[in-house]
């Protein structure tokens, strides 16, 4: 029995130490993270102002300054992911109203896409304005506090006939203002100060917070039950 164990351990050591195993890891890395110098590059400076009022109605204005630094044209998409159906959504590309392709629209998930083409060594300005009801996280619904999450709904995807892979460098600068005092606010790549959350020079950010509430309706029935139990106990004790 001991002999078999030694053989199995030796086999596993051989397998882990084999050059084939190491080669697979190196190859996967090579595919996922291409060499920066050889890759086409698009820079996107994204500035935004987000205002969420006390009724959780969110008004957002995003401005994207996208620059193509290559000497060939690049085509791509701006994808907008949302957790609800927006009341209004408008996208302007260089001041002109763009066609919004609705990929999916439901009260749990909505996705929109706008096609953009960028000429060689030039910039375009894209403005995304929308109004949407900010919904709480639906799998964790507290009666005393509802949890909210915010991150950028904007995603950029580019391609070119010349290059297989185009790297996009996004940089976010903006401000999120809440119409109420948030509780248990946690912030990644941003600074929170009272009702205001500031994002500066960051490639990614997300914010989680809770909105306190009092469950009046459920509380009334709970009080009725408590009084019922108390009445029964007092009646029986006499």
């Amino acid at each position: 029995m001991v002999k078999y164990n030694i053989i199995i351990v030796a086999f596993l050591c051989l397998l882990l130490a084999s050059p084939i195993h190491g080669q697979i890891i190196v190859d996967e890395r090579a595919i996922l993270i291409p060499d920066r110098d050889d890759t086409a590059q698009v820079n996107a400076d994204i500035s935004f102002i987000v205002d969420i009022d006390e009724n959780n109605m969110e008004k957002s204005e995003y401005k994207l300054d996208i620059s193509n630094q290559e000497n060939y044209s690049i085509e791509g998409y701006i994808e907008i992911y949302m957790e609800f159906i927006p009341e209004t959504i408008e996208v302007l590309v260089d001041g002109k109203k763009a066609d919004i392709i609705t990929q999916e629209e439901s009260y749990t998930n909505s996705r929109y896409r706008v096609k953009i083409d960028i000429a060689p060594e030039s910039d375009i300005i894209v403005e995304v304005d929308y109004k949407i009801l900010k919904t709480p996280q639906q799998w964790n619904v507290g009666l005393w506090a509802l949890q909210y999450h915010y991150n950028s709904p904007i995603n950029l995807q580019f391609s070119s006939k010349k290059e297989d892979y185009i790297r996009t460098y996004s940089k976010y600068d903006g401000k999120i203002t809440l119409g109420y005092e948030p509780s248990k606010l946690s912030c990644s790549n941003c600074i929170s100060e009272g009702k205001t959350i500031t994002v500066e020079d960051s490639d990614y950010f997300y914010v989680n917070w809770e909105k306190k509430r009092v469950p009046y309706r459920a509380g009334i029935l709970y009080l009725v039950m408590i009084f019922g139990i108390m009445y029964y106990l007092v009646k029986k004790s006499r």
């Binding site: 009724n55 439901s106 009260y107 509802l146 509430r213």
Partner: peptide, 21 residues
């Protein structure tokens, strides 16, 4: 009532979200 969770107040036009799916 998922609409009710989303709205959280007696907003005007809330009936649109009475049955959200």
């Amino acid at each position: 009532y998922m609409g009710g969770i989303a709205i959280q107040s007696d907003m005007a036009g809330s009936s649109r979200y009475d049955r959200i799916s």
